[in-house]
């Protein structure tokens, strides 16, 4: 029990580490959703980014290049997603589900082609991985997103694109263009989220390695009421649950059975449902979220 408390610092550190991919992805989701485009595809964007990061880091021997690979892959997937949901007006939830399936299928497919293994990429030596940089980078991104949305005219356009796209349109700003920028940036950030799994927290990309973190990021975003700073706090909270859950695996605290970690695992989703139902605070989505925009 004592050693358990003594390791408080360790838990703080691992909380910061495991919330990094969540924070990246949640910020990505935030940009897209504030502009009015639902992003269920976060999970798939993360997978694409995670794979891109590992593949590029392996071939260039540079983690920084890997991060750019992640940004590129995430942006490319987001570009395809944008074609469907912004231009072709496909249902955003259907298309998002499809992109998750696509990423879950295409990453092992490419792994098999490139590395002759459909389970994981070859593991990266320590020198080709990040040590702490992604943590700092994710909080930098938070500051940038927060400042952009709050203080710049283009940030205002993003917010209006999600609330009253017609107003933006009559002010002469192209709604579709604003949404395009947001969705592409969303892909870049979610890609970095994937990268922080494959070349930061782990030493390779393995199949379906996000394991629901894209959805957890979505939950954090809703829990954070679609606002940057509360979203970051939610990411930290969910990261803390995750760190505790890893720590408590197999630990016997009382009685004879180990702590049932499943209950800690479901906490993020449970609190999200509660907050959305207005039991804990109130969370409201952007008004025009999910509605394709058609200029008159």
């Amino acid at each position: 029990m004592m050693e358990f408390f003594a390791s408080g610092m360790q838990i703080f550190e691992s909380t910061l580490r495991v919330s990094t991919p969540l924070l990246f992805a949640a910020l990505g989701g935030l940009l897209s959703e504030r502009a009015g485009v639902v992003n269920i595809a976060l999970e798939g964007l993360m997978l694409a980014g995670g794979f891109g990061a590992a593949a590029v880091a392996l071939s260039t021997h540079s983690p920084v290049a890997g991060a750019f690979g992640a940004i590129f892959c995430g942006a490319f997937f987001a570009f395809l997603y944008g074609i469907f949901v912004i231009e072709l007006k496909a249902d955003q939830i259907v298309a998002g589900t499809a992109f998750n399936l696509l990423a879950a299928g295409i990453t092992p497919f490419l792994m098999k082609v490139l590395y002759d293994s459909s389970t994981s990429t070859p593991s990266l030596p320590l020198a080709l991985r990040f040590q702490q940089a992604p943590i700092w980078a994710s909080w930098m991104c938070l500051a940038l997103v927060w400042a952009w949305l709050k203080f710049t005219p283009s940030g205002l356009w993003v917010r209006i694109a999600g609330e009253h796209p017609e107003a933006l349109d009559s002010a002469g700003i192209r709604v579709k263009r604003v949404r395009w920028v947001s969705v592409i940036l969303s892909g870049c950030l979610a890609g970095l989220g994937g990268a922080s799994l494959s070349i930061f927290l782990a030493s390779s990309f393995s199949r379906n390695m996000t394991a629901g973190r894209g959805f957890m990021a979505l939950a954090a975003l809703i829990f954070g009421k679609w606002k940057p700073i509360p979203t970051a706090v939610a990411c930290l909270l969910f990261g803390f649950f995750d760190a505790m859950q890893i720590r408590l695996q197999g630990v016997v605290l009382w009685g004879s059975d180990p702590v049932p970690v499943q209950f800690i695992q479901i906490l993020p989703y449970l609190v999200t449902i509660l907050v959305l139902a207005g039991v804990v605070g109130q969370s409201r989505a952007p008004r025009s979220l999910g509605i394709p925009f058609q200029a008159k």
Binding site: E87, L88, K89, A90, A95, A98, F99, L101, L102, G105
Partner: peptide, 15 residues
């Protein structure tokens, strides 16, 4: 999975 995703996308792209 890839085939499923592509079929969904092709069916859903009403535009």
């Amino acid at each position: 999975l890839i085939l499923q995703a592509l079929v969904i996308l092709c069916v859903s792209a009403e535009g």
